[in-house]
Design a protein around this nucleic acid. Structure first.
Lengths: 114, 114
DNA sequence: TTCACCTGTCAAGATTTTCTGACAGGTAAC
DNA sequence: GTTACCTGTCAGAAAATCTTGACAGGTGAA
């Protein structure tokens, strides 16, 4: 397990958003038990496959899980996902630091872009 | 500063949801610089007062900030907010642990309630 | 071929969240 | 009185998120 990471504002926000959902917390918990492929994971968690797909992409975009194709013995291509070694601490000081590099919805010169 | 807290699933989710917003990160950052009252904070952050009010409530519900009424010299009642001493770590193991006590959107016996 | 799996995508509806403008009340100062 | 602050709330629009069902493709096995 790596040392505690230091994320910039946008990264932190991306991660927090990825974690702020019960399904996604369960997905991480399930993958922490061991790597798994999409369809099986969907059955385990009782989620529709398209829904799980979307949640996995959100988690992967935040760098919390990683997927890779693996060809099974009988030639089927399966996408296996595993959790990454992420670890970070959250307190007021860390947030104050991160907030300085936030590019979204700034008071001036907003990057919003409609 | 207190030791790293250990939150149950629902608490953790509440906190993560509270933090998963750029405005709210900025609010915490601003309050980390020093306590402040609502109207002034709204001007500093360039947010409408009703909007800030909503965000503050979300943060307070998660236990990240605390507000109290303070009567100024000239008799006006102002609501001052300050950050609390929260601190917690996030990694796959912590999430796996917390996920076990999640009550929302469970596979069976959902608590959804419409 | 048909079946049972796997993968991925899309459109569109349902639900939440975010945000604003308008309104209510209060005090002190001019 | 009016003005200038402070507080709080509400309804409703706007935007983002979540979720499902249907469709596309692929493989190997019976």
């Amino acid at each position: 397990m790596p040392d505690r990471e230091s994320l910039d504002g946008d990264q932190l926000l991306l991660v927090l958003n990825a974690l702020a959902n019960p399904h996604r917390l369960r997905i991480i918990a399930a993958l922490a038990d061991g790597t798994n492929y999409v369809s099986q994971l969907a059955r385990d968690l009782q989620l529709s496959r398209p829904l799980l797909h979307m949640h996995l992409q959100r988690l992967e975009a935040a760098g919390l899980v990683e997927g890779h194709i693996e060809v099974s013995d009988d030639g089927k291509a399966m996408r296996y996902y595993a959790v990454t070694d992420f670890a970070f601490g959250v307190d007021a000081a860390a947030i104050a630091e991160a907030a300085r590099t936030l590019t979204k919805s700034e008071p001036t010169g907003r990057t919003k872009g409609k």
